[in-house]
């Protein structure tokens, strides 16, 4: 088998194994709940029968591995169980399917993350590469100190500064980003402007610094000096000698930061009351609505693992040592 294929398959297998263990951990969340949680959810007035019925519905009578298989089987088909909220002591059940709660919000979150990524990735690659090329110049130092400051800011600090300036003092954008399925695209973009801007500022700082470090590392390679000494111009050095070897580190940087974006989304969604998965998850954690927490966590984890997997695979298929084995 070709070494590239072999390595990629190996990496895919590792990704699957990780996914399996992660799903096991998330699943076991419900196992770790204290014994009387049924009472806590249904309220003090709940009778023993309603609690017992609730436990039966969750399948807590079945052995754990059966329930795990059912849970995973359901998750693959898009069934993440039923929310805890909406139940009460009398046994009436107005709870909703977790997937119905998540699906519209997932779309919103992906929209926000994509808008951010479309702006942030090119900007930070440009800043990172140029500051690496003009290392130690005033330009580089300014960018470096600015981004070092920005990465130290909590997301909500950046968010509220933007609200203060662009929503309160100079009301250009709305401070609340309430969108729903019927919002037209232009309106959606307008309302998501501040959250997207906040995320962009935070991500660009991180991504730019990592890109800069990766490029500087690359430019220090002896073969770059060799290329200069064979008369290659600056452009040629970068395009022909640095770039072919830069895909792997750059892919890693982008994937890492997109994964970071997934997490940063949680706080930003709460600040701007943006109806996304992050906000849903925080609400679920506050009300200890475990099935919803599990569903959200699973989605975040899968995205995260997937992004890292893609970066690794890009690294593998651009590695000349693997592409051209001995």
């Amino acid at each position: 088998m070709h070494p590239v294929l072999q390595t990629v398959l190996g990496r895919l297998g590792l990704g699957l194994a990780t996914l399996f263990v992660v799903s096991l951990i998330i699943f076991s969340a419900i196992e770790m709940l204290p014994g009387d949680f049924g009472q806590a959810i249904l309220g003090q007035a709940a009778t023993e029968e309603t609690v017992a019925a609730f436990r039966r519905e969750l399948g807590l009578d079945e052995p754990p591995y059966v329930r795990y298989l059912q849970w995973v089987g359901g998750a693959i088909q898009g069934d993440l169980g039923t929310s805890f909220s909406g139940r009460n002591a009398s046994g009436t059940d107005r709870s909703r399917e977790v997937i119905d709660l998540i699906a519209p919000r997932l779309w919103n979150t992906l929209f926000l993350a994509s808008v951010t990524a479309i702006i942030a990735v090119p900007v930070s690659l440009f800043l990172g590469i140029t500051s690496a090329l003009y290392r130690n110049s005033v330009y580089d130092r300014t960018i470096n100190t600015t981004t070092l400051t920005t990465i130290s800011f909590p997301e909500f600090f950046v968010a509220y500064i933007l609200i203060l300036l662009l929503a309160s003092l100079y009301p250009i954008f709305p401070s609340l980003a309430n969108v729903d399925a019927s919002t037209p695209l232009s309106e959606r973009l307008y309302r998501s402007a501040l959250p997207a801007f906040t995320l962009t500022l935070v991500i660009v700082a991180h991504m730019m610094r990592m890109t800069r470090a990766a490029i500087i590392n690359l430019l220090a390679s002896p073969y770059i000096q060799m290329a200069r000494l064979s008369g290659a111009s600056q452009t040629e050095v970068i395009l022909k000698h640095a770039l072919p070897n830069a895909w792997a580190p750059i892919a890693t940087v982008i994937a890492f930061n997109l994964a970071y974006l997934v997490v940063g989304v949680v706080v930003v969604e709460v600040v701007f009351v943006y109806p996304g998965v992050g906000q849903l998850m925080v609400d679920a954690v506050t009300s200890r609505d475990i099935p919803v927490v599990q569903g959200c966590a699973l989605i975040f984890a899968v995205t995260y693992i997937l992004l890292n997997l893609i970066a690794d695979i890009i690294g593998i298929i651009t590695n000349p040592r693997l592409l051209h084995p001995k």
Partner: peptide, 21 residues
């Protein structure tokens, strides 16, 4: 550690806090 790091830590923390309070 690889597995633990495969879940973003804020998300993991949220899951655990929802269980343990």
């Amino acid at each position: 550690v690889d597995v633990l790091m495969a879940i973003p830590s804020l998300i993991f923390a949220l899951v655990l806090l929802s269980i343990f309070g």
